[in-house]
Simulated scan of single mutants.
Amino acid sequence: MKPAYRWLWLVFVSLVLVACSTVKTASAISQTPLKTASKATVKSGAFFQNDGPADHIPVNLDLVPNAVPQDEPLIKAANLPYSALGMNFRPDTSDSPYKVKGKASWYGKQFHGRRTTSGERYDMFAMTAAHPTLPIPSYVKVTNLKNGKTVVVRINDRGPFHRGRILDLSFAAAHRLGFVGQGSASVMVERVWPDAGGEHVAAATAPRAAPIAAAAPKYLQLGAFNKLASAEAMLKKMVDELDQRYDTKLGIVNQQGVYTVRLGPFPSADEVRTAAESLNVENIVMN
């Protein structure tokens, strides 16, 4: 082969290899399997692609505490109607009770560290879960109907998009419930709220009990906008820039037509000032 043709051939092959090595990144909310993907089946279940337990499981996984229900502002962008795998979903942002029996599954290392629908990073060792329509964030008590074990988890993601399943739990939650090896289990899912005497579990037909009045929580205002799109743009920017410990405290509230991006709640004004100093916020506005 002549040198000139050989050089052109090598350039062409290099370009092809570069193109083939370019892949599209995915997030924890993108659970759509590739059409050519196959499942690696184990004796008692199946893992999608490279999903499954972590390569190194913490020795104290049994000691991971339940999520503690808190009053948190809903994340607007995470509660909009959406479609997935040919199905349409409309999140229920009301304070309605929820008590349903069904199959729960879990998701693990393939999604660990990726963004969830809430914008937070998925932590397979935290007490969280994905639900198709419950508010984000909200809390549920999950009971394994086979062994009676229970956990309380925080809903911060969407899924599972499977007609036969009602909940996708974190690896830690599934471990505590005792069905990691089976891949899925029959469970009871009940929505819970914070209450002065501890967690409050609503009956399927009962309205939410009114909480006892407490000191108003404090919030650090990060920005105020006339347009929701502008507030959502700032929220996304803050999620990308802030330390992960602040992810669950970020939210947008509509205050008489003004969309406010705020951080909280904090139990006291002193903690708001501490957060403002760590974030280099000069003009401290509390609400």
Rank of each mutant, 00 (worst) to 15 (best):
R245I: 15
E282H: 10
V11G: 08
A233L: 06
L250N: 03
L80R: 15
V258S: 02
K39H: 13
A204P: 02
G183F: 02
F125R: 02
K39C: 15
F225L: 04
A126D: 11
A215H: 08
S21W: 10
S105C: 04
N156S: 06
Q31M: 11
P211C: 06
V18I: 14
Q244S: 15
P265Y: 09
G45D: 12
K218I: 02
V153G: 06
D51K: 02
I75T: 10
T117K: 10
L8H: 06
S184D: 11
A28C: 13
V64W: 01
M238K: 10
A214R: 10
V64S: 06
K227F: 13
Y259E: 06
L169G: 07
F171S: 02
I75G: 00
A37P: 00
M188Y: 05
H162F: 08
Q70K: 11
S38V: 13
V59T: 12
T128Q: 01
A26I: 12
P211I: 02
H162C: 05
H56K: 13
D55M: 06
W7E: 09
V201W: 00
V42A: 05
V281Y: 01
A213R: 10
P267D: 15
A216C: 02
G52K: 03
K99V: 14
P207Y: 04
G178Q: 05
A202D: 09
K237G: 06
S230Y: 06
I57L: 01
V189Q: 07
M1P: 07
Y139L: 03
Q221W: 02
C20Y: 09
P160S: 08
V18L: 13
K39T: 15
L235D: 05
A224Q: 07
N280C: 03
V42E: 07
K236V: 05
A210F: 03
P265C: 10
M127E: 06
S230H: 09
L80K: 15
P91Y: 04
S96W: 04
Q221E: 10
C20L: 15
Q70P: 01
P91E: 06
F125G: 02
K24W: 10
Y107H: 11
L250M: 06
I252V: 15
Q70C: 01
Y82S: 10
V272P: 07
A67Q: 07
N60V: 06
Q244R: 14
V201E: 04
P97I: 14
Q221P: 02
K249C: 02
H200P: 00
E232L: 13
Q244Y: 14
K249P: 00
L15F: 12
E232Y: 04
L242Y: 15
E190R: 12
D123R: 08
A213Y: 05
L145I: 13
A210N: 11
H56G: 01
E120K: 07
Q255Y: 13
